[in-house]
Design a protein around this nucleic acid. Structure first.
Lengths: 343, 343
DNA sequence: GAATTTAACGGTAACGTTTACGGTAACGTT
DNA sequence: AACGTTACCGTAAACGTTACCGTTAAATTC
């Protein structure tokens, strides 16, 4: 609605053609230095700003927008990631369109399609649990829209991605507990259809095995998350089962910090001392974890760096023809007081 | 880059004019039912999607995008708000462009200008501390771009806004402490140039006064936040001073939950029992607060509702000519265990 | 049956840009 | 003097769409 200045206005004011004005503003060749100067001055004077719609239409290019789809902004990991994305995007002069899937595959599909129809230059997707690759992502990949998958992995996915090396992280978390001297280590995991949970379980298994311990399947408790983020509750319930075993565990590697919160609640209720009676390692270094009592040892995921890298990959994918960019970030142990050296 | 289907393609395939195709798809008058059907079928067949750029350019309307500027996505309050914004925006068929100001006024200005140049339909702004109204917001208000200010208030601002009734919230928080029977209530606040801190301080003052107590200025500690979110540290430092007073307070109303975390740390260190020795009420119901030990009594701000309302106001402002929309949400006391009835 | 309405459609211009192309001076070259 | 070169600028078409107006044939009116 607001009456914007156009090339025509400048042209009229200076009594030259629109073409010349355009040339001046986009510093192209075939233009007199003086004319250019006058155009620039006039442009500033009447506050001329190019009409992106017209420019993109004419150039038949897309707008400088990248679409970001995440399951939940409130989640610490995703908001950190988003932060990294926005920073890097701004550096590359891109705008960021954000949508939430709420871990709903249909909603995710709609967002992907809407973004695509809108004409984004690319899409960064942190897939929801149960995301349907063939249905949601494949169509727009075929449309040649650059896509970078973040955080979660599809099976046999061969496109661009940035994720967290969950296997490695879980391995190191478990290893840390072993090195502290905890002998019986349980794992509270999350539903298998979610690749992250799967990888972390594998990492846990590998660590136990590599250290010559026998893996007791009773020590593995897989929670069944619904869409709600009721992690703490699930953790609490898990403890209920784990500590009714004949030989209850002396340490727990929890697949998320949220779940660990539930473990804390259970431990407190039963008068168990963390870390003496029970060692705990979480995953993802949620904001909560530093405020828990005692502060939770956990795995930092570098969400912000992942976000930044994702944007860079998208950017590279724009020009690079067919080349694929992939990277796994190794998590880092954040040593706090929920684990202690028992030796 | 991806070769999109155009009206021309449909027209050619059916041997009719582009105009007719357009009419069919936008279900306008002057079109045969059969023709319309054939067009729609063909459109679906070749997956035609209108080119938004061309449409908006032709109609000289903006794209369906609303720009959102917040200081920090990681912050619980803002991410909740953003969530509300995105939900409501999706319902109204708007896309959401997000940018972070990081409490930097210049960065905020750049975002506002960029969004405006981009051609957003409107802007929702949660101003950063020290945001310069005249410099940042006034220019685009003059450009007639609908603006809704959220959360924080400018002095003498007369445009659209949705905020939290901080005065009322602070009043009720303080009142709650008084009703519990705490006799000496201190306030840890934040720098005055931030309207929110100012309002909460006023609310605190009013509550003390209305209950016939004498306000001891020594009980008011104003933290000087820099841009960093070092709330806990500030809270800790504040306690240092407050508890070296001749008559230390028996309760604290903290301007944010973050700061309250610092109070907890101090209390734990000095062996004070919360809530017996020290009652605490926070503000904003951060995620942390429920996990603190004991869980923190605090004021819920309905960030999500505020976000939703903000989008609705923006939407109304699009058509309503000059009408101004304003609303203050009253915070709600979330009663937990950091306060107790002493009577 | 002539006049008028109506249904259905097409042509053209326009939204604000960019760009391929052509044109006109002014100058230098042989 | 004829030609080529250079520097600068304008014309016109195009990007994909929609609004406006005109056109045709059939249907309706009297």
């Amino acid at each position: 609605m607001p009456q914007r200045a156009k090339l025509k206005d400048i042209a009229k004011a200076l009594n030259i053609s629109i073409t010349t004005v355009s040339r001046a503003l986009n510093n192209k060749a075939d233009i007199n230095a003086l004319t250019k100067e006058r155009v620039l001055a006039k442009a500033k004077e009447i506050d001329y700003k190019p009409n992106n719609l017209a420019v993109s239409l004419r150039k038949s290019s897309t707008l400088n927008v990248v679409g970001v789809i995440i399951p939940d902004v409130k989640h610490n990991f995703f908001s950190k990631m988003l932060q990294g994305i926005m920073e890097q995007a701004q550096d590359l002069n891109y705008f960021v369109l954000v949508g939430e899937s709420h871990h709903n595959s249909d909603r995710e599909k709609k967002l992907i399609d809407d973004f695509s129809d809108y004409g984004v230059s690319g899409i960064l997707l942190a897939p929801s649990k149960h995301s349907d690759f063939d249905k949601n992502l494949l169509p727009i990949i075929h449309k040649r829209i650059p896509v970078v998958v973040v955080d979660r992995m599809y099976d046999n996915y061969e496109g661009n991605f940035v994720n967290c090396n969950d296997f490695d992280g879980a391995y190191r978390a478990t290893q840390h507990l072993l090195e502290c001297g905890y002998k019986t280590i349980a794992h509270i995991g999350s539903s298998d259809s979610w690749s992250i949970g799967h990888e972390r379980l594998k990492g846990y298994r590998a660590a136990i095995k590599d250290h010559g311990l026998i893996l007791d399947e009773n020590y593995i408790h897989i929670c069944n998350f619904n869409n709600k983020e009721e992690g703490a509750e699930e953790g609490y319930k898990a403890c209920h089962r784990l500590f009714s075993l004949k030989h209850p565990p002396s340490a727990i590697f929890s697949v998320t910090d949220d779940i660990a919160v539930g473990v804390y609640q259970y431990a407190k209720e039963k008068g168990m001392d963390i870390p003496r009676d029970l060692g705990i390692v979480g995953f993802s270094n949620a904001e909560v974890s530093q405020y828990l009592n005692p502060p939770l040892t956990t795995m930092e995921q570098f969400a912000q760096d992942m976000g930044r890298e994702a944007v860079q990959y998208f950017y590279k994918a724009l020009s690079a023809n067919g080349q694929v960019f992939q990277k796994s970030f190794n998590p880092h142990l954040v040593l706090r007081s929920s684990t202690i050296n028992l030796n």
